[in-house]
Each structure stands twice: as C-alpha cells, then as structure tokens.
C-alpha cells in the first residue's frame, strides 16, 4: 500500500519520467476503484459524472455503439431515472427506415436505441480526424491493458486485479506533456507518456474546469473539476459500459462460492464416512517400502 502510494506520488510529481528513456513506457499507477475486489460496486454519482464527461468531451469523436440508452437506467449502472433516459434518448437523432416511400428518415431516439455512432463509417471517421479513426469506447476499459510482468501476473490472480484497463486509461488521459528534448513528435501526433510509442493521434482531450459537475448542498461541485477527476470519472463510466453486469457478477459469485464451499465440506465428511467402511482412506505409496514395518 505504502509502495503504491509512493508510486502514485512519484508519477504525479513526474519524478519517474527520467527513469524512462525514449521508447520505454512507464507503468500506470494503480488507483483505488470502488468496483475493485470481490464486493466492489460502482459509485452511481461517479458514473453519472463520467457519463457527463463522455457526453460533453468524448462523444463528438468516439462512439458508444454497444450501449443502449435504456442501459443507463438499468440496475448496476449509473441508474438514471426512466424519465431522464427517455428525455436523453429523445435528444439524439436515430436513423430509421425505410418508410413506405422507401426513404430512410431520422426520428428522435427511444430508450431501446443504441448510442448512434458519431460518424457514418470508419473511413468518414478517419477522414475527419487526420487519418486515424477514433475507436469506439464501449469496450475500451477491457480492450486496453499494460504489461504486468513476472511475478505480478501471478499475484494479480490472488489480488483479483482486473482494473489494468482502467488504470491505463486514467494514466493516458493524464499523460499528455511536453515531449522530452530530442524526441520529435510527427505532424498530427501528440506526445503522451503512457501511450505505447508516445505518439498518439488524439490531442489532449481534457482540461481543468471544462465540464461542470453537479453541485452539492453547499453549492460546491460534487467532485473537483480537474483533469485527474474527469479522467477517473469517465474511466469508471467506461468500465461500466465495458462490463455492465459487473455488480451482478460479483454478487452471484459470492453466493456461488459460499454454496460450493458448504457443499465441498459436506462431501468431504460424507467421503470420510464412506471410506471408514474400509478402514479409512490410504493415499499413495511407501518409499522405500516397509522400512517402518512394526
């Protein structure tokens, strides 16, 4: 824990930068997430803020095409109200058709619709963004990771560390900085500390104060309106879009584990009882044989 805090501090202060020569990518700091661990759940307010960041910043270029508006109201997610989702969906134009005349037409979205893609196709997306199509974000938190290496990939199993995608995304969004001396960033590229190869097509998307957060009773924003907070919130939201049944999975998992452990216990004693009929279980072999024969 201490080590991790130090690591985060080091990363925040930029102390780790000189340790990495050009071409080397620093390891994203491991953050604390509400959804990590066997009983993790999403923070609803965070998901709602994250959605706001997505909508106001990312959505102009990045799609969310596997997510339907109705998902936003489903349990285990941001849990907006049905009415909010209906109103939100209606703000989007969805292509439908053909009608009787054979024409495609646009209509207001319904909760059952999925988020429309910002560009009609990948080529259009690439053409509008300097030749590189901005990827869809629905699965981003599961589609990105970073190298864990030995022995961490083994300890991850026991720690249930599966937030590597989320940690990477936050690091990436915070990772824009001036290119170090001697590093030439090609035309249309941007220097990012955490992006493999350091040259990313996406310009720095977030800046402090860019998105207005809901106010609490004291009239203060619910969370700091900073790049780091925006990055964490939008990442939490994208973790939910990538794994919408995460809460149900962990909840069911606990019940299943509990049941199986009880069943295994019962079976163990049943087995002992049955084997007692033949004088108990005797495993294996004696080596070398019979040296301790009475």
């Amino acid at each position: 824990m201490m080590k991790r805090t130090l690591l985060i501090a080091a990363a925040a202060l930029g102390l780790s930068a000189p340790a990495f020569a050009a071409g080397e990518t620093p390891v994203p700091p491991q953050l604390k997430w509400s959804f990590q661990g066997p009983f993790g759940t999403f923070d609803r307010a965070q998901l709602q803020r994250g959605f706001k960041v997505y909508r106001e910043v990312c959505a102009s270029c990045h799609g969310l095409t596997y997510v339907a508006f109705r998902n936003l109201a489903e349990p285990g997610g941001p849990e907006f109200s049905e009415a909010q989702v209906k109103a939100l969906a209606a703000e989007y134009k969805i292509q439908d058709g053909p009608n009787e005349a054979g024409d495609m037409f646009e209509r207001p979205g319904r909760p059952a619709d999925r988020f429309p893609a910002p560009f009609p196709n990948e080529n259009a997306a690439a053409a509008a963004n300097g030749g590189k199509a901005p990827p869809d974000l629905s699965l981003m938190a599961k589609a990105r990771t970073y190298e864990r290496g030995f022995p961490w990939f083994i300890t991850d199993v026991f720690r249930q560390y599966s937030e590597n995608g989320a940690d990477y995304l936050v690091a990436l969004l915070n990772g824009y900085e001036e290119a170090p001396a001697g590093f030439t960033v090609p035309q249309g590229g941007h220097y990012n500390k955490y992006y493999p190869g350091h040259v990313i097509a996406m310009p720095k998307p977030l800046s402090d104060g860019q998105v207005e957060y809901p106010k609490n009773e004291a009239g203060q924003p619910q969370a700091p309106e900073t790049v780091d907070q925006y990055a964490r919130d939008v990442t939490a939201f994208l973790t939910w879009t990538a794994e919408p049944h995460l809460e149900a999975r962990k909840r069911l998992g606990f019940q299943v584990m509990l049941f199986l452990i009880v069943l295994a216990g019962l079976l163990y004693f049943t087995k002992k009882k049955i084997w007692a009929r033949v004088g108990g279980e005797v495993d294996g072999h004696a080596t070398p044989p019979m040296t301790h024969n009475p």
Binding site: V262, L263, L266, L267, F269, T270, K273
Partner: peptide, 12 residues
C-alpha cells in the same frame, strides 16, 4: 450427513 449432502447437491 448423507441426506444433507444429497439435498445440497440437488439444490445446487
């Protein structure tokens, strides 16, 4: 023991 184990397995 036998009944409990059998019942648990059946429920599972």
């Amino acid at each position: 023991l036998y009944i409990a184990t059998g019942a648990a397995a059946a429920v599972g």
